[in-house]
């Protein structure tokens, strides 16, 4: 396609992003702001795709727009003054917020300018491409996340775990949802298995194409959100004992592998090249389950109550007389 047309498309995308971002922040109606935020996330995913960062596009669409949107909607639902506009924030708060936003914008602009001015020196991307063959995977993003910069991902998993522990400490789960009508029931019955298969695919394909633990975990969590919306209070999570282990599995597997290789003379999370592929797959599988359980628990807002063992969508709906 004509480069001028592409530029027009990009400018339109950038303008829409700015407009949506502004509208989402400017509105006093929380529900409207949230809808605009979700639309903003989806457009941001498009922008990442245009920047040829499909991994980020997937993550932004699944986590930034999808799961974060669902979390915010769930939080809005438990808000006591439903339907009322948010109270006007104080002047000092607004001023501080603006100051920080301006500082952040200046910092990002400075980073962008210095990156553009750097010229054709040695870039990190080049170093990654050179060492890709030793990483055990052929997707450079996965190589960076799970091998070259494995520390970062390890700490990210720890952050997610502690965030969910905070959510769990806040008290009991939010009340569940009522039983779905036949249409939503049918949709959930079709979508949940499809989402589970897609999650497995994203996990596997992450080794050589866009995908990976975060996208796969978010996809599985989306299935849990759907189940919860369909009146399954436990959202498909296993019993609490199993869920606790799954929640920690990602971090545990990462630490175990990282420490295990030190016994053979390698550094912490420095994998031997011939074993790297298998080790990365083990870590990513555990991380996928952990992320899925963490996001699902965050959406539920605590440990789900298991009244009358309402684990199955089917018994639930036959009770409701809709099937």
């Amino acid at each position: 396609m004509n480069p001028l047309l592409w530029m027009l498309l990009d400018l339109l995308l950038a303008a829409m992003l700015l407009g949506l971002g502004w509208a989402a922040v400017a509105t006093r109606d929380l529900k409207r702001g949230l809808a605009l935020f979700i639309a903003f996330g989806l457009l941001l995913a498009l922008a990442w795709a245009r920047l040829r960062a499909p991994d980020l596009a997937l993550a932004e669409a699944a986590i930034g727009a999808g799961i974060a949107g669902a979390l915010l909607l769930a939080a809005l639902r438990s808000e006591p003054q439903d339907g009322q506009p948010a109270a006007a924030p104080s002047r000092v708060f607004l001023l501080t917020l603006n100051l920080f936003s301006v500082l952040l914008a200046v910092a990002i602009a400075w980073a962008l300018l210095s990156a553009l001015a750097m010229g054709d020196g040695v870039r990190l991307a080049q170093a990654v491409t050179e060492h890709l063959s030793q990483s055990g995977v052929s997707n450079p993003v996965t190589a960076v996340l799970l091998n070259f910069r494995a520390y970062d991902t390890l700490l990210e998993l720890a952050v997610i775990l502690s965030a969910v522990l905070g959510v769990l400490a806040l008290g009991p789960a939010r009340p569940g949802y009522r039983l779905p009508g036949p249409v939503l029931y049918g949709l959930i019955r079709w979508l949940v298995p499809l989402l589970i298969v897609t999650g497995g695919y994203l996990l596997w394909v992450g080794a050589h194409a866009p995908g990976g633990a975060f996208q796969a975990g978010a996809t599985l969590a989306a299935a849990a959100v759907l189940l919860r919306l369909g009146g399954v209070d436990a959202a498909g999570l296993p019993a609490a004992v199993v869920s606790r282990w799954l929640l920690a599995a990602g971090l545990l597997a990462f630490l175990a592998v990282g420490l295990l290789v030190t016994a053979f003379g390698y550094g912490f999370v420095q994998y031997p090249p011939d074993l790297a592929a298998g080790l990365i797959l083990v870590i990513e599988s555990a991380a996928t389950l952990s992320i899925a359980v963490a996001l699902a628990l965050a959406y539920i807002g605590g440990w789900p109550s298991r009244r009358a063992q309402s684990g199955s969508l089917h018994t639930h709906t036959t009770e409701g007389g809709t099937h």
């Binding site: 009508g181 249409v183 939503l184 049918g186 079709w190």
Partner: peptide, 16 residues
């Protein structure tokens, strides 16, 4: 097909 199913279901939910 996925968009068809999702939009049909959400239209039904909103209308109901």
């Amino acid at each position: 097909l996925l968009v068809l199913a999702a939009s049909a279901a959400s239209a039904n939910l909103i209308a109901r």
